[in-house]
Design a protein around this nucleic acid. Structure first.
Lengths: 195, 195
DNA sequence: TGTACATCAGTGAACGCGCGTTCACTGATGTAC
DNA sequence: TGTACATCAGTGAACGCGCGTTCACTGATGTAC
């Protein structure tokens, strides 16, 4: 039975990863169970062999997306301010904006998460804390916890600016906004705190 | 027939205004036609006496919300930097965060709008341009158009930060983020442009 | 090694329900003469 | 002023469809002896 169990774990991971992509491009309410499972090459009923409900899959997929964002983007970046600038420039690249299913879960799902169940919001919050601790460690290497609010502020600004760039029908304006986003983020990184 | 026509116009306005509130609190995909009409004291079928489709109502309600945001908040604010500071402090108040149906449509709907039909995105874009021109007139009174990207950047930052504060399950952290949002917005208002 | 049985992942039809949309109809209010 | 008719806003049942969830079942793979 060992092979079978390992196989089932792999399948679960595949469901979670594909669901993360689908949720980001169609939204939470916009992604049905049949579609989510078909993305993983399975039929609707199979979901309940892995999760208690669609909501549990959503919470798990959101957690996984946040973890992936930390692992692939934040943890990979250089230490200190240089790393944050790397992250910001990647974030506001037209590629990130235009491939929403590969992009940042914050930009794709934040307002829907705010409306979601407690368990989804909790999964999101846990993931966000890991992400912002990666920011904080680069903002204030000698006292990361003190930089948490600043790190949260940066995350919110990144996500909102990206959403706005995606929502605008005027491509030129949307591109100008991405460039403005980079300038604003660098301004915030370097700012002595306002009071 | 004059009375009747005026009555129908009033009813249409009521549908639009109530739909705006419902969409902000339940989301676009989360608000059904029956619910939207019931909010206005009507039955499901009546929608099609006023709009060609749910999507047309959504686009109209989004436009109305953006217009109201401009009229009630931005246009009311003082000229110059003082007015922007007023707006920012209102925006990041706990009251605005906690009553989503009365609050800013950008914070409530931006990622869903980015996934919407072209007509909804267009209605949103038109409304956003009016809003940011109100910002731009206060950022650069002598050359408002030059401040458009900066104004857009501010709008994205406001909306994203508010969404994040709503999504977090940790209330204390969410409150700290609102305060950080004020500091960040003021920093951006006063910043000489980064390059 | 061969056979009987247990366990497994996955299927897909069916459940009740709400979705967006259509349409024949109601009843109140207006106009015509 | 009274009566016949037109126009109006709104109703609510019905359409086909997709939703989340359940469950009897299949067939492959494992274990027992």
């Amino acid at each position: 039975m060992r092979y079978a169990k390992e196989h089932k774990q792999e399948t679960k991971q595949r469901i979670i990863a594909m669901a993360g992509r689908r949720l980001k491009s169609n939204g939470i309410d916009g992604s049905g169970v049949a579609t989510l499972m078909k993305d993983a090459g399975l039929t609707n009923g199979t979901l309940y062999a892995y999760f208690a409900s669609k909501d549990e899959l959503v919470a798990t997929a959101v957690a996984d997306q946040m973890r992936a964002q930390h692992e692939n983007i934040v943890a990979q970046a250089a230490p200190g301010r240089a790393g944050l600038e790397q992250i910001v420039r990647w974030y506001f690249s037209p590629e990130q904006r235009d491939s929403i299913e590969d992009g940042c879960p914050n930009a794709a799902l934040l307002d829907e998460i705010a409306r979601s169940t407690d368990s989804t919001r909790q999964a999101y919050t846990d993931g966000a804390l890991v992400l912002i601790d990666g920011f904080a460690a680069r903002l204030a290497p000698h006292d990361p916890p003190s930089a948490r609010p600043k790190a949260l502020g940066l995350l919110g600004m990144l996500a909102g600016t990206m959403q706005l760039s995606r929502a605008l029908t005027d491509r030129q304006l949307a591109d100008q906004l991405l460039e403005q986003g980079i300038r604003n983020a660098l301004t915030l990184l370097d700012a002595e705190q306002h009071n």
